[in-house]
């Protein structure tokens, strides 16, 4: 990516800080609510930029291992969904569940890490 500093993550951070520090305190009602929603959405983007690559790589390894075939994430996820529906994963249920649980934990770590805590 041909970018100078601030890089992508730093730009997203700048917009998030602008919304939370300068916009949110000066609006109310529906606009204040949507500003908080926007701040949270940008925080998802920041976490994805920081951790998403490693998560994708690990997911791809798990999928290849589980399905015993090659492909990219999109192809293998489509194949896994098809195989679950067709009942073809029943002989690998433990491995399947371990994969699905890890994937769900990774997704939530990006989308809403507070959800992993008691009061999230």
């Amino acid at each position: 990516m041909p970018t100078d500093r601030p890089n992508t993550a730093e730009l997203v951070e700048a917009v998030r800080e602008f919304l939370s520090d300068h916009v949110a305190p000066n609006v109310e009602g529906q606009l204040a609510f949507h500003t908080r929603v926007a701040v949270n959405a940008l925080a998802i983007v920041e976490r994805t930029l920081a951790q998403g690559g490693a998560m994708d790589a690990a997911e791809l390894v798990r999928l290849k291992d589980l399905l015993k075939q090659n492909g990219d994430l999109e192809e293998l996820n489509a194949e896994l969904s098809r195989a679950i529906r067709a009942g073809e994963m029943d002989d690998r249920k433990d491995a399947l569940l371990a994969h699905l649980r890890q994937t769900a934990e990774d997704k939530i770590a990006l989308a809403n890490p507070r959800y992993l805590t008691k009061r999230g």
Partner: peptide, 16 residues
């Protein structure tokens, strides 16, 4: 709607 976009990502909570 930014709200609807954000709710779309809440599907991850239900998956978890």
């Amino acid at each position: 709607s930014v709200e609807y976009a954000a709710i779309g990502r809440r599907a991850a909570e239900t998956e978890y």
